[in-house]
Amino acid sequence: MSTDFSKQPGSATASSNGVAVHAVDLYRCYGEGDTAVNALRGVSLDVLTGHLTAVMGPSGSGKSTLMHILAGLDKPTSGSVEIDGTEITTLDDTALTRLRRKHVGFIFQFFNLLPMLTARENIVLPLEIAGEKVDPDWFNEVVTKVRLSKRLTHRPAELSGGQQQRVAIARALITRPTVLFADEPTGNLDSRTGGEILDLLHDSVETLGQTIVMVTHDARVATIADRVLFLGDGEIVKELPETTPEEIQKAIQEIGRK
């Protein structure tokens, strides 16, 4: 498949947008006293259903922190997060875990596959954990999408980095999560493979209607994102809807100069 970064305006799912994640006035403070770091200082945002929302910003600007809080892996010092209408900041660990199971998918920079399981077993792991049945049609669709049909019996050690990340993507898609979070999914891949992954994520949004929030440093994301948020020092400093790589480069430099 050729790398296609062209935006397809007016895609079917983008029109009927609901709010997948609703975050209000998020603060996150690490440590206390003199050494306290304010990683987030008042971030509010809505992640729209069927959108690919990209988060960019310099290192240390709070991107990962924001992702973790939106995904319910971390709790904000103050502020609220709703996923699919459920307030998650007050849930206990078990309830939160169950919510993640149902509503949240993850793609990590370091793939994080289980080495002793085959690709297939890794992909269906979230369903197994939840004690749910695998829908064979959906499984086939996802596997075809990530182009792993011929690699299903391989173990992670026998797969390339790109293939491993595609397994991770399939693992995230298999539960049809309300929202899928990806923190620098291309950070550990070469540029070409990274492009393929971006392409795949875009395709998931377009054809499967998957909602995605993604942190990346790759300017090519501009062509596939419905919206790009720029974080600087714990605040949203800029927001670009449907943008171009050039605009992004400019924005990054602007923020860097501040």
Binding site: A71, L73, D93, T94, T97, R98, R100, R101, K102, V104, G105, F106, F108, F110, N112, L114, L125, P126, I129, A130, R171, A172
Partner: peptide, 16 residues
């Protein structure tokens, strides 16, 4: 450890 973190993130509970 990292693997356990991943499993917890994708939805295994403490009990699991």
């Amino acid at each position: 450890t990292r693997e356990l973190g991943m499993l917890r993130a994708i939805g295994i509970t403490q009990r699991q």
